[in-house]
Design a protein around this nucleic acid. Structure first.
Length: 421
DNA sequence: TCTGGGGTCCTAGGACCC
DNA sequence: TCTGGGGTCCTAGGACCC
């Protein structure tokens, strides 16, 4: 393993051959807080928290100085200020973070097109093809860190490994402002001593279940029979964690992935019980969702309403439409109906949200309906009647047809369905 | 004055189909 | 009718991540 700290000093010798560590994970250090400090350099070295000052707000980001007091992201602001009363609280500026994020991703894109943003401040890179041009992963990572520092004034940490998961773990161990390369041959030696929560997907609940089996480290889990894991945490999680614990992670670096859902939600400063106020909020949220649907070229088949009551109990209610939509009023109307069914009149609401799910490319919708046994030719019939006759699956199949595609027996056009709504 | 907002993935039960 | 089994879709909830 070779590690480099913020001064550029190598902690151990650079390996002669680290080309096996071809996947880089780059993660900006305390990103939002660091961006704010660019504007307020006099606050460097002080505990700084980024977040709103509202009664129900949480910490969005914190500098390492604030973290020393036990302040972390997602912590209620009230608790954070109790732990660190002299922290400086700054309002977030998402437009700035987005601009810096673009700049950083652009720098990454100069090395390889195989850049997969994971969030606003981190990304995977597959540098296999870049090695002949720019040198081994260690050299590429060093160059990237230097460029980011020089051009943005921000620091980034990088992990390099043979797989995504190990690279991400390596970057977290390199933080802040560090670089850690884990050659493939050293993967298990690096992995197995780590605490079990280092595994991607092990949070508090899973940690608790695994602790009941006596498992505390990644190595413990690796040596546990799969069936015992299945019984404790379910099929998918057991297989995935077991694979990860042996350093096996087949996921490739994929530059773009289709969105699966688009939603917006708000937490009110004080619980809201007024039906008109809630419905106005639904329309506002639905409008933002619909705008993003259209911008992305999507239509949604399913509308989901999310409610959090005054006691923090949270429910979701969803409905799949006969005809997909990207229209705010349609989303809003459906959400309103769900709200009326789900909320006992007069109940106070803490949070309300609207989400569009089951996204389809706009234009691929309902080009035709068909059935295995008989044609369907009555365009006067409503979509619900189609669903009743052929099952809701018929609408699904119709929705999944591509533009221009038409089954031999298809008879009901999207215009037909739309006009019947 | 104790809990944001953006998401993804998994599970489980019932309906329905073959 | 003392009644299977596999697959898909829909819905609700929960765990998890940044």
């Amino acid at each position: 393993m070779s590690k480099q700290d913020g001064s550029g000093r190598q902690v151990t010798a650079q390996p002669t051959d680290d080309t096996s560590a071809r996947i880089l994970h780059l993660d900006m250090d305390a990103f939002f807080a660091s961006v704010e400090l660019l504007e307020r350099p006099e606050l460097r070295g002080r505990p700084v928290i980024v977040g709103h000052r509202g009664a129900r707000s949480v910490v969005t980001a914190a500098t390492y100085e604030a973290r020393r007091y036990g302040v972390n992201s997602a912590m209620p602001m009230a608790i954070a200020l109790r732990r660190c009363p002299n922290a400086i609280v700054l309002e977030p500026h998402y437009d700035r973070y987005t601009a810096f994020s673009r700049q950083v991703m652009g720098i990454l894109g100069d090395v390889t097109p195989l850049v997969e943003p994971l969030s606003i401040d981190e990304a995977f890179l597959d540098v296999r093809g870049a090695v002949p041009l720019f040198g081994p992963p260690f050299a590429i990572a060093t160059t990237l860190r230097e460029r980011i520092r020089r051009e943005t004034g921000l620091t980034a940490s990088v992990g390099a490994a043979a797989t995504k998961f190990v690279a991400k773990l390596a970057s977290s161990r390199a933080k802040p402002d560090g670089l850690l390369v884990v050659p493939e041959a050293e993967t298990l030696g690096f992995l197995h001593p780590q605490p079990i929560t280092a595994l991607w997907g092990v949070g508090g609940a899973t940690e608790e279940r695994l602790a009941r089996l006596g498992l505390r480290t990644v190595g413990d889990l690796a040596r546990t029979p799969l069936d015992a894991l299945r019984a404790a945490i379910g099929e998918a999680g057991a297989v995935r964690l077991h694979e990860l614990s042996w350093g096996r992670d087949p996921r490739a670096v994929t530059p773009s992935r289709d969105e699966k859902s688009i939603g917006h939600e708000v937490t009110f400063e004080r619980d809201v019980a007024d039906a008109d106020a809630l419905e106005r909020e639904l329309l506002r949220l639905a409008t933002r969702v619909a705008e993003r649907l259209r911008r992305g070229g999507w239509v949604a088949r399913t509308v989901a309403l999310k409610l959090r009551f005054g006691d923090f109990r949270t429910i979701t209610r969803s409905r799949t439409l006969a005809e997909p939509t990207d229209v705010a009023e349609r989303l809003s109307r459906e959400a309103r109906g769900l709200l009326q069914e789900a909320r006992p009149a007069g109940t106070g609401i803490r949070l309300i949200g609207v989400r569009a799910e089951n996204l389809l490319p706009a234009g691929s919708v309902a080009r035709g309906l068909w059935d295995d046994d008989e044609p369907w030719r009555d365009a006067e019939t409503t979509a619900d009647a189609v669903a009743e006759r052929f099952g809701r699956g018929a609408l699904t199949r119709a929705s999944l047809l591509q533009p221009g595609e038409r089954r031999r027996r298809s008879a009901l056009s999207s215009e037909d369905v739309g006009s019947l709504d």
